[in-house]
Amino acid sequence: MFAVFQRNSITSEDLLLFRHKLFKHGIHVKVFPLQVIKKVLGQLQLEAMLPLFIGHTLIVVSSQAKVKEMLQAARTVPQTLLLGAFIENKLLSQQGVVNYSKLPSKETLQGQLVSTLTTMTSQTSSLLAHHSTHLSRLLEQHSKEDTKSA
């Protein structure tokens, strides 16, 4: 995860609080001069993010996509404004990041998939058993009718 925040007149205490809240979740805040950022991003796949680096910016990086935690920490510091992010090889706008944070986790989706597959398997099994049970009842009824008529 690589996010860009605009930094408006933030006090050093608020910035330290912001860094600390993010660091608790394994997210780091970096500040680099614009010349360094432009040179490095020009060489990476993040080149599309170059227009976001105007004025004072903060870079928020993490090895995992911890978007909810990042947004919660950013809400406590109104002097920062999310401009965009690069999450799981996708370039996202501010609204895209908010929408991404509302998605369920991979573990939740895997659990739902397993549940759906299990339900479908049991339904298929019961449908197959239902037809054979129904067929055997019909054959029993037919054989009883044959024995009565004979």
Rank of each mutant, 00 (worst) to 15 (best):
Ile54Cys: 04
Leu17Pro: 08
Lys21Arg: 15
Pro78Leu: 02
His28Cys: 07
Leu16Cys: 05
Glu47Gln: 15
Ile37Pro: 00
Lys90Leu: 03
Val61Leu: 11
Phe32Asp: 02
Leu92Thr: 03
Gly96Met: 09
Glu107Gly: 05
Ser12Asn: 14
Thr11Arg: 01
Leu117Trp: 02
Leu17Gly: 08
Val60Phe: 01
Leu103Cys: 06
Glu47Val: 10
Ser115Gln: 15
Leu50His: 00
Gln79Ser: 06
Leu81Phe: 13
Ile10Val: 13
Leu117Asp: 08
Gly42Thr: 05
Asn89Cys: 04
Val114Met: 12
Met120Ser: 13
Val77Ala: 10
Lys66Arg: 15
Gly111Trp: 06
Leu46Glu: 10
Met120Ile: 14
Leu22Glu: 00
Pro78Met: 00
Glu47Arg: 13
Leu109Phe: 07
Thr11Asp: 00
Gly26Met: 08
Ile54Tyr: 07
Arg19Ser: 15
Lys24Ile: 08
His25Lys: 13
Leu81Ala: 05
Thr119Asn: 09
Val29Phe: 04
Val67Tyr: 03
Arg19Phe: 05
Ile10Thr: 00
Ile87Gly: 00
Arg19Met: 06
Lys39Leu: 07
Gln45Ala: 08
Thr121Arg: 15
Leu109Ser: 02
Lys39Thr: 04
Leu17Phe: 08
Leu44Ala: 06
Gln43Phe: 06
Pro33Ala: 06
Ser115Tyr: 13
Ala85Trp: 05
Leu83Phe: 10
Arg75Leu: 11
Gln35Phe: 02
Ile27Gln: 09
Val97Asp: 03
Gly111Glu: 09
Gln64Trp: 15
His20Asn: 07
Leu113Asn: 11
Ile27Asp: 08
Gln95Ala: 15
Leu109Cys: 05
Gly111Phe: 09
Leu113Val: 05
Lys68Pro: 05
Ser93Arg: 02
Leu17Thr: 08
Ala85Tyr: 05
Gln110Cys: 05
Leu82His: 04
Pro78Gln: 07
Glu47Phe: 14
Thr119Trp: 09
Glu107Phe: 13
Val97Ser: 03
Ala73Thr: 04
Lys30Phe: 10
Leu46Gly: 07
Val114Ala: 11
Gly42Ile: 03
Tyr100Cys: 04
Gly96Arg: 03
Leu15Lys: 08
Gln43Cys: 08
Ala48Lys: 15
Val77Tyr: 02
Ser62Pro: 07
Arg75Gln: 15
